[in-house]
Amino acid sequence: MKRVGIIGGGQLAWMMGDAAKQLGVELIVQTPSHLDPAVSIAQDIVLADVDDVHGTEILAQKSDIITFENEFVNLEALAVLANQGVCFRPRLTALAPLLDKYHQRCYLRDLGLPVPQFFALEQPENIPSIIAHLGFPLVLKSRRHGYDGQGTYIIDDAASLEQIIEINQPRNTAFLIEEFIPFQRELAVIAARSVDGEVVIYPVVETQQEKQVCRRVIAPADITPEQMDVSEAIAHKLLNSLEVVGVFGIELFLTAAGKVLVNEIAPRTHNSGHFSLDACETSQFEQHLRAVCGLPLGNPALQCASAVMVNLLGYEDSQSDYQNQRQQIATIPQAHVHWYGKTASRPGRKLGHVTVLLNQHNQTAACEIANTIENIWYSG
């Protein structure tokens, strides 16, 4: 029986629980709190922050392989363990170009993948020339540790840019500036690569965001075969170049001219792939465990015509488990409610998600179902 250590104990690790049972895999989780979701599915836990290398040393002693639920790790410190023979999947060299968003942009550009124009904000005196080149609006991003819209700002004027930089100055936040893409749609694709180099790709999906936080995912995306091919080719090229073992999430822009650009790479399972738990033959979580354990990859195909996934986001500070809303949502035909078991709600926090399977590929119907779910959820 393989023992897989997971750095991170949030919902992404929690959702590996059922797949681990099916595959006969033991999960050991490194996470800072007994209250974190994945504690309930782990055979053992190491109570430590995800960047606590001593905690990872203990995790390594209990595990055959170590993988990642999030990317907030200290790669330099983990490299010492890797040099001592600890098996990380994906390898640290696959993560190294991706954790800093400026370095990630450079890697993608140098690989020949299409990305927005971007600049590192290293010298304040360079700001006027960057503004002159990009114009407004533009996008300001923290180079490290940004997720779910945190650390990402849409900037409309020079005064707002100066204000945000000044607010973040005490934390010495490093920033990336890039052009604002007036996209037609946001897309995403989940891809997995095995130890032997086999790559499988899930259907390209449309993601619908609000304040840079994912609200909905529609699978498959309503795009042309050519746009689908381009998206899949990006996934193949990226995973093979990095020699990834495991699942990656790739966020994309579809421009008004029909061009596909890479937005960001998540070196792990991803919110845009949650629909796969109920809609695909092999979920992204089972696929990730298969890959890191050296097992054959599973079939990523949809088992229904289409699916819509809606995130259940916190909208208040509360200790409620929202059972009434969840029960109402569960009565929707072919709805599957996944509740992460978090003990506290706060605005924007991901508390769960719902996937509804559809018998036809109909964008309008998918959006209507998503509206119904959100009306129940946010009605309180």
Rank of each mutant, 00 (worst) to 15 (best):
A174N: 11
E281T: 09
V205P: 04
D51H: 15
M309W: 03
S142A: 15
R105E: 00
V310T: 13
L295A: 01
V244C: 14
P347W: 08
N126I: 03
D100S: 05
P347G: 07
V200G: 02
A158L: 15
N311P: 09
I45H: 03
I130Q: 12
V199I: 14
I373Y: 03
L161A: 04
V189Y: 00
H270A: 00
T56E: 07
G8I: 14
K211Y: 12
E26N: 11
R91H: 15
V244K: 03
P220A: 00
E178Q: 09
R326F: 01
R143C: 11
P137Q: 08
A132I: 00
G149M: 11
V292A: 10
L12N: 10
P225A: 10
V262H: 00
V25D: 06
V244P: 05
G151L: 02
L92S: 08
A77L: 09
N375K: 12
I190K: 03
S40E: 14
P32G: 02
G348K: 06
I41G: 10
V245P: 10
S241H: 11
V200Y: 11
G380F: 03
Q11T: 04
Q212T: 08
Q334L: 05
E26W: 09
R109T: 12
H361D: 15
E57P: 04
Q360F: 01
V262C: 01
C304Q: 09
S129L: 12
K259E: 15
E76T: 12
P182D: 13
M1K: 10
E69G: 07
S306Q: 11
V189S: 00
H133L: 06
G135C: 08
V213S: 04
Q325D: 00
L252T: 00
A79Y: 04
A257S: 14
P137T: 06
D156L: 03
A82G: 02
G85Y: 13
V199P: 09
A38R: 14
I127F: 08
D100G: 03
L27R: 11
L27S: 11
L95Y: 08
K350D: 10
R216Y: 14
G352W: 14
V244S: 14
V204L: 04
Q325C: 01
V230H: 13
G294C: 05
L238I: 01
I41D: 12
A307G: 02
S231D: 05
I329E: 01
G24E: 13
A344N: 08
G112A: 06
Y340S: 07
Y153H: 15
A60R: 09
P32T: 03
Q11K: 13
P220S: 01
E71G: 03
L357K: 12
V205W: 05
A330D: 06
Q287N: 07
P114D: 12
L35R: 13
T364H: 11
S272F: 04
A79Q: 14
P116G: 01
K350F: 05
F68R: 13
T207F: 00
A221I: 09
I7D: 07
F72I: 05
I66P: 06
D51L: 06
P267A: 05
G294H: 11
A191V: 01
H274R: 09
R290D: 08
E166P: 00
V245A: 04
E179T: 13
K237G: 12
L95V: 04
V139M: 15
P267E: 10
V139T: 06
I190H: 04
M309C: 02
L242R: 05
E57C: 14
Q360E: 15
R193D: 06
I28L: 10
E210Q: 15
T224F: 05
L313E: 02
F253V: 02
I190N: 07
